[in-house]
C-alpha cells in the first residue's frame, strides 16, 4: 500500500513496486489508508508511508496501525522528506520498521524491501 498525498509520488512508488511484482493499493492520507485497510483482502504485506499529509499524517497512521492487533503482520516503511536524526528515531519508536528518505532512487526502495525480506534479493 502506498500512502502519500502527492499523486506524482504515488505514481513513482507504484511504478517501482509494480516492477518488483507487488500489487498496489493507494491512499492519499493516513485516514484514507485506515479506511482502505478495512476493505482490502488480503491485507497488504507492506505500507510505504509519507509523513506530512493532510487529515492524518504518517506518524499518526503508524501509531494507529501498531495499536491494532489485526495489522501486526504488516511491515511499515516510511518514505518521507523528514530526515532529521530525531525524526527517524521518533518514527522507529512509533513502530516503523524501515525508513527511506526522499529523494530516493528505485534501487533504494528495492534494496530496503529486500532487507525486510519482502523481495528476493536476486531481483533487486
Amino acid at each position: 500500500m502506498v500512502i502519500d498525498d502527492s499523486r506524482a509520488m504515488r505514481l513513482i512508488l507504484r511504478r517501482i513496486v509494480t516492477q518488483l511484482g507487488f500489487e498496489v493499493h493507494e491512499a492519499g492520507n493516513g485516514k484514507e489508508a485506515l479506511d482502505l485497510l478495512e476493505t482490502v483482502d488480503p491485507m497488504p504485506q507492506v505500507a510505504l508511508i509519507d509523513w506530512n499529509m493532510p487529515v492524518m499524517n504518517g506518524l499518526e497512521f503508524v501509531t494507529a496501525v501498531r495499536s491494532d492487533e489485526r495489522f501486526r503482520q504488516m511491515t511499515l516503511m516510511m518514505v518521507t522528506t523528514e530526515s532529521e536524526h530525531g525524526q527517524i528515531v521518533r518514527a522507529l519508536a512509533a513502530g516503523a520498521h524501515e525508513y527511506v528518505i526522499k529523494p530516493f532512487t528505485p534501487e533504494a526502495i528495492a534494496e530496503k524491501l529486500a532487507l525486510l525480506g519482502l523481495v528476493p534479493s536476486g531481483i533487486v
Binding site: 530526515s83 527517524i88 522507529l92 532512487t105 533504494a108 534494496e111
Partner: peptide, 19 residues
C-alpha cells in the same frame, strides 16, 4: 542522503551516523 538510502538498515543509520 542518496547513499545512505542504499541498502543500509535504518537502525544502523540512526546508531552509527551523525547528520
Amino acid at each position: 542522503q542518496l547513499e545512505v538510502n542504499r541498502g543500509l538498515p535504518v537502525p544502523m543509520l540512526v546508531r552509527y551516523f551523525d547528520r
